[in-house]
Every structure is written in C-alpha cells, then in structure tokens.
Design a binder for these strands. Structure first.
Lengths: 187, 187
DNA sequence: TTTTAAACTAAGCAATCGCTTAGTTATGTT
DNA sequence: AACATAACTAAGCGATTGCTTAGTTTAAAA
C-alpha cells in the first residue's frame, strides 16, 4: 500500500535520549536531533508529533535503561545497604567515557521552568516519586529504624541524589564516592 | 562634555541579577533584561559589553548580597553548628514570597555546558570554592573531628547544598528543613 | 552661544529556533 | 502495468535570539 519506514522508532529514540542526556532539553535543537537520529525533521514530527514528544519518549527509554538497577533495589533485602548499592550503581550508570552526565531526569527538572512544559514536568516528577518510594520501602526493612525518621531520611536521600547529579559534573570520581560514603556512614 | 547616564549601573544590575536568578542564564533574553533593567539594549551593551557581561556583574552583585551570611559563617566559632546555621540562612536568603529560587550560582552551574561560556563557568566555580573553603575551616574547629574526614565531609556538605538548590524548587519548607536536620544529625 | 561627544531611541542585522508544506520517491494492492 | 498512499527530501515559514548601527537628544566645555 505504501512505503516502509527506513528507521525503527526505538532505535532513533535511544540516540535522541543520549543527546538530551548530554545537552539538556532546551540546548538540544531539532536540527541536532535530526543529525543524531539520522532522520529528517519531517520524520521526527510525523513519528513523535513535536520536540516535546521526542523528549517524553526519551524519558521512557531512559526509564527502561535504568530499570535494571532499579529492580536490583526493588528486590534488595539489605535495607539501607541496598540503597547505598543503588547510589553506586547509579554513578556507574551515569558514566560515559569516564565522564559523568548526571541523571537525565534531574538535569531536566532543574532546567525546565515551573509553568513551561507541564507535561514534561509531570513525567519527571512521577519518575522521582517512584525512586523515593523505593527508598522508603527499603528503609523500612531495617528493624531498628524509627518509623518517624523514614520519611525524613527518604527526603534526605533524594536530596543527595539530586546533589550528585550536579556534583557529578564538577567533582571527580573519588570525591563522588566520598560523598556517598559520608552520606551512609552514620545514617 | 557630554550627556549624563540616566541610570546607575549598580541599580540596573541588581534588577538583572534577580531576573537571572529566577529564570536562569539562557532563558533570560536581552529583551527581558531591557524591560527589567528599564534601559535600552544600546545602554546594556555600552555598559556591560554583552549578555555575558551583564551576567558576570550579576554574579558579583549576588556575591555582595550573600556576603552577610557568608561573613556570619566566617566569624563563627561553633564548628559544624556554624555551618548548619549557614544552611538555614541560605534557605531564608533564597526565599522570595515563600517561593524558593535556589542559588543563582548553582542553578547556572547546572545549566551551562562545559565548553560554552568558560568565563561564566570560571566565576561560578571560584564562588563554590570559596564556600567550600569556609566549610573546611569551620569543620576543623571541632577538636574531636578526624582531619582525614574533613575534606570528605566538605564535599558531602557541598553536595547537600547543591541538592538543596534543586530540592528547593520541588520540596516544601518542612521537607527542606528535614533534609538539613538529617544532614547534620550524625555528622 | 557654539561646539562636541557621550547617552539615548528605534529600526534592523544575520543566525537560529520549532515546525510546516510542496513536491518527489518508493512500495504494496488491484 | 497502473494506481494509491505513506515515507521521504528540501526549502522555507514566522518568531525570537544576541547584537549593531544610523540618527537624535542632551549637557558640559570652549
């Protein structure tokens, strides 16, 4: 009936995701996406509607990629030690050519204005809430831990992860590991 | 010999600074600066050379503003308690109409790409280094604190401050205070 | 009072932004 | 083989970006 697509949407989105991850949302232009994805602007818009659509699919792709270390945390039975393991996994996950890129989600949360791009913001907040919920359930595994403290500690851990996203662009690997060690030393 | 300026550069830079603080570097256009500063683009470029120049002066202005709470930390003799005080001071400092704006410097560090705007990046990193040095000297005030740990803890505290800059846009005041409390609870 | 130079206004520069559209190519159906 | 239709190419849309420039106004020096 008609011509076949010369690309698979899964493949080109993964390339787009890496571009957004490195550059952020605004700084990634449609022309750059064109080159990185290897398809024409027409194809981009016909497959994903608009730039926001490309990004939302990129977040889905990012979620899939990070899902393996998220599942490790999900099935962990070591309480806070499982979370610490997740922090190290995350550090490795966000490394490329011994260069840290931070977290796609956190990077974008910090970049997007409150009013602008509400759909993007909703998707990002939902992702963050999922991670925080895992922190809470893992903290509750520790018998001696006070229940009242769990929510506070979850916020604290989220803050540390947020910090690591920026810190990973400025600090070296050793410093990042020190941050994790101090974070969990007395928690 | 010639006409007088109808504005003082100090006054208009303070307005520019607040705009950058709220919106970030890229998202603040020269047209927006024009309106906020109340002067024509020609005056902006004749006084500050270019947009980057306006921003660099804005960072100087920001430093002056934050200097009072920095000096409190500088003259503090309570070791880590002085740092905790600084965290709360910073939270109040970055609040406007019960809305948190984060830290101008941190916001921009996270936004600017490594290669782009190197002058901006240098100014920002220098500012961060000054804060970290204060953390180190205050930590050393505590006699029982192991010297080896001080540098690690300084990185940890920097990471917490970085985190708070993002967290302050997503979390409420109570949560932010919880983060500070947990941070210093066992340090 | 005339001169002169800086401070102003406003229009417009090239480049880039996200996005669209007219026209061509390819492919499965009849 | 002829048709129908989706996938492609490439040019270009209006809006906005940082920045400049030609022309006018103002005020201090001569």
């Amino acid at each position: 009936m008609a011509r076949k697509k010369q690309y698979t949407e899964e493949e080109v989105i993964e390339k787009a995701m890496h571009l957004f991850w490195r550059n952020g949302y605004e700084a990634t232009s449609v022309r750059m996406l064109e080159k990185e994805m290897g398809i024409n602007q027409f194809s981009i818009y016909s497959s994903f509607k608009n730039k926001q659509g490309v990004f939302l699919e990129s977040v889905k792709c990012y979620k899939k990629k990070i899902n393996s270390i998220k599942e490790t945390l999900q099935h962990s039975n070591n309480g806070i030690l499982g979370i610490k393991h997740y922090f190290y996994d995350f550090l490795e996950f966000s490394t490329e050519n011994s260069k840290f890129k931070g977290c796609l989600v956190t990077n974008t949360v910090n970049e997007i204005k409150d009013n602008a791009e509400p759909l993007v913001m909703i998707a990002l907040k939902q992702f963050a809430a999922e991670i925080r919920a895992l922190f809470v359930s893992n903290l509750k595994q520790d018998d001696q831990r006070a229940t009242i403290e769990v929510e506070k500690q979850a916020d604290f851990l989220m803050n540390t992860i947020l910090g690591l996203s920026i810190a990973s662009k400025v600090f070296d690997k050793n410093q990042l590991e020190n941050i994790i060690e101090v974070t969990f030393a007395n928690l």
